[in-house]
Computed example of a mutant assay.
Amino acid sequence: MKSKLILLFSLLTICTVAFSQEKKSDKISKHNMSVTDKGLIKVTIMYPYSEGKTFNMEYYETKHMPMVAGYLGANLVKYTIEKGVPNGIPNQPLPYMAIGAFYVKSLSEYQAAIAPNLDAIRADFANYTNVIPVLMVSEVVQ
C-alpha cells in the first residue's frame, strides 16, 4: 500500500507540471458581479467505491481535512467535502464514497505547503479509509 501511495502522490506532482502557468484569480463574475472561483486551482481528492472498502466521514470532516487545510494557510480559499449517494440507477454502485477539494490561489504555494507534511497526511489515511484516493488538479474556468 505504501508504494501505491507514493505512486499516487508522484502522479500529483506530475499533474502540477501541466498547470505551471497560473492565472490570477478573477473574483468578479461578468454575468452577475458576484464572487466566483474562476482562476483558482482546485485539488480534488476522490475516494472510489468498491466492495469491502470503508470510509469514516466524521473523521474526514473533523480531523483530516482541517489538518490539511491548516497546512495550506492563506493560500487556501476554501475546501469542500462531498459524500457519495446512490445515483438511482438500479444495480449500479455509487462511483465515489467521498470527494474532497481544496481551492487555492497558487499551485506552487500548495506544493510548497504539502511537501514537508506529506508523511503526516499519508499516515492519517489509515484513520479514516482503506481506499487509495484518486487525485485531480485543475483550474476553475467558470
Rank of each mutant, 00 (worst) to 15 (best):
Met1Pro: 09
Phe102Pro: 08
Lys2Pro: 01
Glu51Leu: 07
Val104Lys: 04
Pro116Val: 01
Pro66Asp: 10
Met65His: 02
Ile14Ala: 14
Lys23Glu: 13
Ala113Trp: 09
Ser29Trp: 02
Thr36His: 08
Ala74Asp: 15
Glu61Ala: 14
His31Ile: 10
Tyr128Asn: 07
Asp26Tyr: 04
Gln92His: 14
Thr62Ser: 12
Ala98Cys: 09
Glu22Ser: 12
Leu5Asp: 02
Pro48Asp: 11
Val85His: 02
Leu94Val: 09
Ala69Thr: 01
Thr62Cys: 07
Gly52Tyr: 05
Asn56His: 08
Gly84His: 08
Ser106Leu: 03
Lys42Gln: 14
Ser138His: 00
Gln21Ser: 14
Val85Arg: 02
Gly70Val: 11
Ile28Glu: 14
Asp124Val: 03
Asp26Arg: 12
Ser29Arg: 08
Lys42Tyr: 01
Ser34Ala: 10
Gly100Phe: 04
Val134Asn: 07
His31Tyr: 05
Tyr49Met: 07
Ser50Lys: 11
Val68Cys: 06
Val77Leu: 09
Val140Thr: 12
Leu107Trp: 05
Glu51Asn: 13
Met57Thr: 11
Asp124Glu: 07
Phe19Gln: 00
Asn56Pro: 01
Gln21Thr: 06
Lys27Glu: 14
Lys42Ile: 07
Ala126Arg: 15
Tyr103Gln: 06
Gly84Arg: 04
Asn32Cys: 10
Ala123Ile: 05
Val131Lys: 11
Ile114Gly: 01
Gly70Arg: 05
Gly70Ala: 14
Ala123Lys: 06
Gly84Pro: 08
Phe9Gln: 12
Leu40Gln: 01
Asn87Glu: 14
Ile45Tyr: 06
Ala113Gln: 12
Thr44Tyr: 03
His64Ser: 03
Ala123Cys: 10
Ile121Trp: 07
Met46Leu: 14
Thr16Arg: 10
Pro95Phe: 04
Lys24Tyr: 07
His64Glu: 06
Ile121Thr: 13
Ile81Ser: 04
Lys30His: 00
Phe9Leu: 10
His31Phe: 15
Leu8Val: 00
Thr129Asn: 03
Gly73Met: 05
Pro66Phe: 05
Leu40Val: 02
Val131Leu: 02
Gly70Glu: 13
Pro90Arg: 09
Pro93Cys: 06
Leu11Cys: 07
Leu8Gln: 13
Ser3Tyr: 10
Ile81Glu: 08
Asp119His: 04
Ala112Leu: 05
Leu5Tyr: 13
Glu22Ile: 10
Lys2Glu: 13
Thr80Lys: 15
Ala74Met: 11
Ser108Gln: 06
Ser34Gly: 03
Lys27Ile: 09
Ser138Leu: 03
Val17Lys: 15
Tyr59Trp: 09
Leu12Gln: 15
Tyr96Asp: 14
Lys53Asp: 02
Tyr79Arg: 04
Ala18Phe: 14
Tyr96Trp: 11
Val35Leu: 15
Tyr71Asn: 09
Leu94Gly: 02
Val140Ala: 06
Lys23Tyr: 08
Asp124Gly: 05
Val131Asp: 00
Tyr128Ile: 06
Ala126Lys: 15
Val35His: 12
Val134Pro: 00
Asn91Ile: 00
Tyr71Pro: 01
Pro66Thr: 10
Glu22Ala: 04
Gly84Lys: 00
Phe102Val: 02
Ile132Met: 11
Ala112Thr: 03
Pro86Ser: 11
Tyr128Leu: 01
Ala123Trp: 05
Pro95Glu: 12
Lys63Pro: 01
Ile41Ala: 06
Lys63Ile: 12
Tyr59Ile: 04
Asn127Arg: 09
Thr13Lys: 13
Gln21Val: 09
Pro133Ser: 02
Ala74His: 08
